[in-house]
Computed example of a mutant assay.
Amino acid sequence: MRRVCVQGLEKLGEGALDAPEDVYVDAAAGGALYTATSDGWMQRMSPGNGSWERWRFIGGTGLLGIAPSADGAMLVCDADKGLLRVGEDGVVTLLASEVEGTRIRFAEAAIEASDGTVYFSDASTRFGLDRWFHDFVESRATGRLLRYDPRSGQTSVVLDSLGFANGVALPRDEAFVVVCESSRCTRVWLKGEKAGKAETFIDNLPGCPDNIRLGSDGHFWIALAQIRSAWLDFVTRWSLTKRVVASFPTLLEWLQATAKGAMVAQVSQDGRIIRVLDDSEGKAINLVTSVTEFNGDIFLGSRATNFIGKLSLAQGAHEQGAVPS
C-alpha cells in the first residue's frame, strides 16, 4: 500500500457551497457535479464553464448523501426527514421516514441497485445530525442498513446494531452491499451461497470510514474522518468515561475540536487497501466526508468547508513512503 500527500487541491465553488457533504458526478452529462448543502439546496456545477447554480430547493439543514436514480431523479438522504426522491421536475417526494414501526432518525447515505432497490443507512436511532458526536462517543451501535423496495413502497431492515452506519456502496456485479461504520466497513452478501450473511469487509483503516463510492476501475474510494485521538481513545475505552463526557457538552465540543486533517483510501473489491491520500494537518481541506472519482480526478466533499475539493490523481499527490497494510 502507498501513502501519498495531497498536493495542488482545487477548490470548486468556494464560498458558494454550505457544508457539501457528498458529491455525485454525472458522466452522461459530461461531468456535471451535484451536491446537497446545509442551506437546503441541491446545487449543480456545469462541466463547461465551472459555474454553479442552485438547481433544486429541498429545504432543511440536514441534507447529506446523494445518489442518482435510473429514472433521472436524485435520491437524497435528509438526516431529519428520511429518504427523499428529487424528480427532474423539482418535485420532492418522501420515500421513507420510518421502518418496521420505528422512526428513521438519521438518514445518511444511499445507493440504488439495478432493479431499483435502494439501500441506505440510518446512522443512529438515538441521536440526530445535531448530536452525531454524542453517538460516536457513546459507541452504542444503534445504526442500521435499510432497504427500500420501490415496487411495494416498503422499507425493511437489512442489518442492525451498526456503529454509526454511514456510506453505502455496491460493486459492479451487485453481489454484496457495503456499509461503513465508525471503525470498519461491513458487507452483506446479496447473491450466491453467502446471500444474507454479514461479514467484515475491511477494518483497521487509518481513520473512521465515512462515505464510500465505487470507482471507475471497480475499486472503492472511502473517505476517512480523522476523529481518532489519544484523548478520544481514552474516553471511549470505558463505559463510565463515555457516560461522563457525554453528559458535559463543553467536553464533547473540546474533543470534537481535536479532530483535524483529511484522508481518503482506495480499497479493492476484496477489502485490501491500495493507496491512501493524506492531508494530515488539514492545510488543503479538513474533515473529508465523501470522495468521488471521475476521469482521473477525485472530488472531495466536507461538512467543514464551503467548497468541493478537486484533485488530479496523476499530478496532485506525491508519495510519502510505504504504510504497512
Rank of each mutant, 00 (worst) to 15 (best):
Q154N: 11
L95D: 08
S97Q: 14
R85W: 01
V76Q: 05
V86H: 01
S69Y: 11
N49T: 12
S114V: 07
V158Y: 07
G82W: 00
T155Y: 02
G62T: 09
F133N: 06
V99R: 09
A141L: 08
F133R: 06
A67I: 00
S46Y: 10
F57K: 12
L64K: 10
S124C: 07
G48M: 06
G87H: 10
R140I: 10
A70W: 06
A141G: 04
A110V: 01
N49P: 03
A123R: 04
T117R: 15
E100K: 13
R131T: 05
D135Y: 10
F106N: 09
G82K: 02
K81A: 08
L94V: 15
Q154S: 12
G116Y: 10
A73C: 06
E108T: 10
G90P: 07
I104L: 05
S46T: 13
P47Q: 06
R56L: 04
E88C: 09
S97L: 09
G116D: 08
G65T: 00
S114A: 14
V118P: 07
R105K: 14
V137T: 11
G82H: 01
W132D: 10
D122G: 04
N49S: 10
M45D: 07
D122H: 04
T142K: 12
I104A: 04
I104N: 06
G60W: 00
A70C: 11
M74C: 09
S124K: 08
S69M: 15
E98G: 14
T155I: 01
T93P: 12
P47A: 02
I104V: 14
G59D: 02
L75W: 00
G143M: 11
I111G: 06
D122K: 05
A110R: 06
G65D: 00
F136Y: 14
A109G: 05
C77D: 02
V76H: 01
D135F: 09
V158E: 08
F127A: 03
G153D: 08
A110L: 09
G62F: 12
Y119G: 04
T155G: 04
T155C: 14
T102V: 11
D89A: 09
D122V: 01
A96S: 15
G72P: 02
M45F: 04
S46M: 08
F120Q: 09
R85P: 03
G50S: 07
G60D: 02
M74N: 08
S161T: 13
S161D: 13
D149P: 07
D135W: 08
V86D: 03
R44W: 01
F133Y: 14
L75E: 02
C77I: 01
G101H: 12
R54L: 02
R151G: 12
T102L: 13
S97A: 15
L75I: 09
P47F: 01
D135H: 10
D149V: 05
R147Y: 03
A96R: 07
A67T: 03
G62R: 12
T61F: 08
A141I: 09
S139E: 12
D122W: 07
E100V: 02
G65P: 00
D160K: 13
